[in-house]
Amino acid sequence: MKSADLQDEIRELNLAYLMLAQQLVREDREIAMFRLGIGADVAELINGLTTAQIVRLSSQQMMLCRVRFDDSALLGMLTGEGRDAATASLHAAIIAAGKPVETLA
């Protein structure tokens, strides 16, 4: 893939991510905080972004969202290793719910 294409892809994904995140936060702040894995301050920040800011933010050269799971056991469960899928997903959800959220430093 050419680098210009890659940048387009990143921009698109950033835009989709920010718009979805903002929609989630506006619909239900607490549930969005859980689903996005963010703290109250980041939720507030996303909520306050204007459309122009979202567009400018998403045209960066880097991804704005990152991999949340730095735990190989958790990753294994999420991808469906284990005795059956339903139990693995329950197990993963229990562990994931206890992980700390992203906050502003």
Binding site: E30, F34, T87, I94, V101
Partner: peptide
């Protein structure tokens, strides 16, 4: 136990992190 543990993790998040 599995189901209530799942609920309790959600509840703790809502109570401690989201402050509801």
């Amino acid at each position: 136990n599995v189901h209530s543990s799942l609920f309790m993790s959600f509840y703790r998040f809502m109570k401690d992190t989201a402050g509801l």
